[in-house]
Design a protein around this nucleic acid. Structure first.
Lengths: 232, 232
DNA sequence: TCCATTTAAGGACATATGTCCTTTCTTCCC
DNA sequence: GGGAAGAAAGGACATATGTCCTTAAATGGA
């Protein structure tokens, strides 16, 4: 990634995400702005980090793959996402590959500065704790869902998580998955199988689809399929 | 669980695990000692917690199950294990069932007291951060392993994690899994299938087994099977 | 505009894994 | 010592899911 010298933009992001409340002025001063470009692989398994990064604009994809190339997308992330928190606390290498899905920006701050911050500033520790706890929580949910349920349940959950606004009411009945292949990776199955399950759903009257455009027809049936599970 | 009035024992545990360095005297004073009994279900999904618990003696099992009764053991834990950390930070309900595998003891401290501790004591926040980060880290490893690899690789990893002392040398070539059924649940498969894979391993000369007693014969072959993955 | 590339759709088949049973040993209790 | 209950072993079969292909429609440059 390339460093961008744009103090105004940097300040805008700091205040938009309340980072200027979390960090001391000294730390804010150490922040740099970086630009990522679509498709770029930002970090790979095994990399050593020495900065903590905040995604402030754009979208990234966290994924992993076995030696044999079998891939699995763990999640997509939008601002404000934090990268390097676990690595900072545990001093370990990067474990998952991070890729830019769109163009965007990161803020970066050196680990060294964070050490300082830890001592002077309780709210930073709290921030870190909240971020990592949240990661653990969602990871635990998702992995349980993946281990315990078949693809149809996971797909239903995934569709609900996009369709539902989380409060029980429903928003866009129609949505376009960018690519079905990507959807397959997110729920941890092959494209072929996803397609199969989608057709089943169509046959059961749960949804309509034509070349990748999926339209939910019966959200109650979908909820039934998901068996009360929702991604996230 | 039943509260035990045994100040000496309590103090022993506090110092054995260095908790008296982490907590303020006021908090130490609020600690209570509890006894668990083998087989007891200690917490279930949906329970509300108002204490943080430390397992100081004995062994527990963290597991979960779907509505249809399909079960999955996430992990076993020995002292010092912490229960309720995520629930404390996020204010959520218990997510996994916790069961006593043996008799043992917990220390408990009210969430309310922790609030206090947070303000007065930086090392407590750090303690919490370390514990949760570690949980995230191991959970991420295990779930990736589970999603990406087949049972044979997972079994090989699991056996290695018991056989290996982690530094490349090897300890007990012979080990007795308490029950194979339990082993199956830990690696997330059915007993039937575990049995199948064990027989394959035997045919390939990797191990010998007779009625549940497994003896590793060729640890290099086993390592090859595990493809570099180790549980934990 | 046309061709190359990507995405979608689904057939055919292979494989991993699960479910349900039956049998055989152990273990343990009365 | 004998029977009941649990643990191990594995046969038979069902099912979920993966791999490999082929075809058709969309999409993005040159």
């Amino acid at each position: 990634m390339k460093a961008i010298r744009d103090t105004n933009l940097l300040r805008t992001y700091l205040s938009r995400f309340g980072l200027d409340d979390t960090f001391s002025p000294a730390s804010l001063n150490e922040m740099t702005l970086l630009r990522m470009e679509q498709g770029q692989v930002l970090w790979e398994k095994g990399d050593e980090l020495d900065h903590l990064y905040f995604l402030v604009e754009g979208k990234i994809k966290i994924h992993t793959s076995s030696a044999e190339g079998k891939g699995l997308i763990l999640r997509f992330k939008n601002p404000l996402a934090v990268i390097g928190d676990v690595e900072y606390v545990k001093g370990t290498e990067v474990f998952h590959t991070v890729e830019a899905v769109t163009d965007g920006y990161f803020l970066a701050i050196p680990f060294q500065q964070l050490k300082q911050e830890e001592h002077e500033n309780r709210s930073f520790l709290h921030f870190l704790l909240d971020v990592i706890t949240h990661k653990f929580y969602t990871e635990a949910h998702a992995s349980t869902l993946n281990m315990l349920y078949d693809v149809d349940v996971r797909l239903a959950s995934y569709l609900l998580s996009l369709t539902d606004d989380g409060k029980g009411s429903m928003f866009h009945e129609e949505m376009r998955t960018k690519t079905l292949k990507e959807t397959a990776e997110v729920i941890g199955t092959s494209y072929r199988h996803l397609n199969r399950v989608l057709r089943e759903f169509q046959n059961e009257g749960i949804l309509d689809k034509q070349r990748g455009t999926i339209k939910i027809k019966d959200i109650d049936l979908l909820r039934e399929k998901a068996e009360g599970n929702i991604y996230e």
